[in-house]
Amino acid sequence: MNKNLPVSNNNTGSGILPEKLNRKKFFVFTGLAALGIAAASVIPFNLFRSNTPKPAASLKIKENPNAVKRKSKEANSELNNG
């Protein structure tokens, strides 16, 4: 290495590399996390849901019972069209 090349003295690896995590701690942590997820997926959170009913539609559509439905869209050939 050429000593004349400008090299920073600041970014040595010493500050960046985290301290090694204890292997045991890691497995304990991930194991508990997995258990937690499994438990959460089983617990019926629905019990906690408040059953507010949906606001009922204020408009009610009602067919008129006396209206006569037309059988087809086509012209009625029997009708005497003037």
Binding site: L59, I61, K62, E63, N64, N66, A67, V68, G82
Partner: peptide, 12 residues
């Protein structure tokens, strides 16, 4: 001819 009008829906 005469033409008829019928309601298809009850008043909204």
């Amino acid at each position: 001819f005469f033409s008829l009008q019928q309601p298809v829906i009850a008043p909204i």
